[in-house]
Amino acid sequence: MILTPEVLTLCILNILFAFFAIIAFVLSVKIFLQWDLNATTQKQYLLEKQSFLAATIIKYIFAIKVPLFLFFIFTLDKISHVLTGAMCAAGVVDATQYGTYLLILKVINLYIFAYWLMLHRADMQDENQPYTKRKFGLFIAAFFLFIAEVVLEGIMFSAIDVDKMVSCCGSLYSSSATSYVSNIFRIDTEVLLFVFYGNFVLIGLFYLLKNKYLFALSNLSFIVSGVITLIAFFGMYIYQLPTHHCPFCFLQNDYYYVGYLIYFLLFIGTFSGIGAGLLPASNTSRNIGYKISLLFNGLYVLLLSLYPLFFYIKNGVWL
């Protein structure tokens, strides 16, 4: 159990979110089941009003969730000073069996909430509100994921044992580690880089073909290949150490917080790519989505590629 003011703050906000999310959930279920835009009954008018409340609550939660996610990472970094052995957030994530799942769940929820907002916008721009049922249906699913996140976060913090030694990121993200993370180090560097750059080329190709489903799919796979290549290959060059691969350390001051930029680019790039593929939208706004996705994914590839390039120019060798 660890109860620093930061953890307590996260818990308070989570309880608040959960309270509001339950209200939004109940309304969503009602709207999902009873929505009928053509009806002129009092009930339908009431539902139309309540849809505003539900949407406002969801927007509120998302608006706080994004900065709170950064705060969460900050908090993990801070806790890592208290835990013996941990150097950065990675050690805290690994300190309990829930950490990794919680982190993945948090990221998934961010994508879902962002997708929900885009759907909501498309819905509100049309007089017939064609996606109302769909968006509140989506929230019903998102609600359970969200509650799972809140519960898991509580469990994780209460499971952290201050006196137990944890692993540091240097040993977690290395080829000698026993966890499933270490599997990615078994992949050949050539294969890895081929997949990474190949995936980006595919995104460009599907942009030219204007195939929205393939575009979304290639973006989805780019999240995975992007992160794995970052850990297995580019990380070494960011740290300029052949043994250091941690995906958290470069979020810290010593690396000029570059990690936040890296993940921001990847998130915006892939999210708008997936959104452009899956969101109902006019051709012009879909085109904007394609372009944003291409731009940000491109910047991600460029930024990461520059690290080994500069390293090579400076030292004349590859790691």
Binding site: L37, T40, Y45, E48, M124, E127, Q129
Partner: peptide, 22 residues
């Protein structure tokens, strides 16, 4: 306000059943 039944058209646009924002 919205009619209990019937329709209101302005410039052939049905305004009696517009969502609140519209």
């Amino acid at each position: 306000s919205k009619p209990t039944s019937g329709e209101v058209l302005v410039d052939t646009k049905k305004i009696s059943k517009l969502p609140d924002n519209f």
